[in-house]
Write a protein that binds this DNA or RNA. Structure first.
Lengths: 212, 212
DNA sequence: TAACATAGAATGAGCGTTCAATCTAGAATA
DNA sequence: TATTCTAGATTGAACGCTCATTCTATGTTA
């Protein structure tokens, strides 16, 4: 089918098969969960024999790890793009609509929830999740620091970390909302989120935490 | 072991066995997930034979349904207690510390995440989750309406629903944070949450949603 | 005795994984 | 060009095990 002069790298064909398996596994995991989906199901969905999957992945756990890593990596590109914008806050506010829609998407949410549930009991998966989260958090922190510095607001670590934590909690909470209240208008949520994010980014810091 | 004069109702002994099974199942599901935990494990943890479990539950699915219902029911008591308070907003703000701590508790979070993941693919579980969510949402809505009415603020449905959705998203997002960033200081999160909740409850409404 | 509680073995299906056997297609050789 | 060689791709059966569930037999109690 492909008449390349050179058969390209060793991995060309193998890479295709590998991502073919990952795509099929992703579908199956979404539909039945990591433990509910079987290698046999995945192999059928990928159009190959069950045994052949073991030429590309050591075991089922390795497939899970690959999918978890791939899924979380997507987050990293997002905040990096904000930082490149002329006005950081504007870029963030404009990204909210898309961010809300994505987290509320049933297919997206279902796999992300499965990853979180698995991470809460599988140390290997937890390690991946936390490592990606760290890189993601420092990227968002840097973005936020820029936005506040441009407005002459405090940028101490406690303030920045607190704001980041609240904002990420808000967005990740939408995963739960997509299950609990799937018909709620995404535009309404986005509007409310915009106000909260704006207030957080342009509001006072959290240097002096005191019990009320 | 128990020398009651009357064996009490038919369910007395049976009820004890039932909750014995549910407690054991809850532990196992927390540790291995709904599909990762086996009836054999649950029976060992409950101190009875595997077959005997089927005298109290039709099948594994029924155990899952019972646990999901029990877990979610706890939410309902919370907002009802707020409403009884002298000042609703103060009661809510005071409840934040506890609410944050609870959602960040690894054991609690792990089961709740499992429930959400299961609900996103199991229609029976989804039905339970949504029904409890509806009752919970209207309870919080009523509480919020009181708080805003007492301050002469708008209480239209769109405003109330938007605020409720954002607040619940924040709190449920903590489930994800407990996995991603488990060591973050809960007091800092609570402080930030207090400000956001106060601003939302006492701020302008969302009657006129418009794109920026 | 009658009714329920309980244990434990039995069942058949499905699991993740392994492995020997085949297929395929290009390189090497003649 | 025709033939052989070879190494990777691929299959499908088989393995040992565990699963959820059912069945039968025995205790226990009232």
């Amino acid at each position: 089918m492909n008449a390349d002069a050179q058969p390209s790298t060793d991995s060309s064909r193998a890479e295709a098969r590998r991502s073919q398996i990952l795509a099929a596994a992703s579908d199956c995991f979404r539909a039945h969960g990591f433990h509910g989906a079987s290698i046999s199901q995945i192999s059928k969905s990928a159009g190959m024999s069950a045994g052949h999957i073991y030429h590309y992945f050591e075991n089922k756990e390795a497939i899970i790890a690959a999918i978890v890593g791939d899924d979380l990596d997507q987050l990293l590109t997002l905040s990096a793009s904000w930082r490149a914008a002329a006005d950081v806050l504007d870029a963030m506010l404009e990204g909210i609509e898309e961010g809300v829609g994505k987290k509320l998407d049933r297919n997206v949410a279902s796999l992300k929830l499965e990853i979180l549930a698995e991470a809460s009991r599988n140390p290997e998966v937890a390690k991946i999740v936390r490592s990606v989260n760290q890189r993601c958090n420092s990227s968002i922190s840097e973005t936020l620091r820029l936005a506040r510095a441009a407005r002459g607001l405090s940028t101490d670590d406690t303030t920045i970390a607190s704001i980041v934590e609240v904002m990420t909690a808000m967005f990740e909470g939408l995963l739960a909302r997509s299950v609990r209240n799937p018909d709620f208008d995404a535009a309404l949520i986005a509007a409310a989120f915009r106000r909260v994010v704006r207030d957080l980014v342009t509001g006072p810091g959290f240097e002096h935490v005191s019990r009320p």
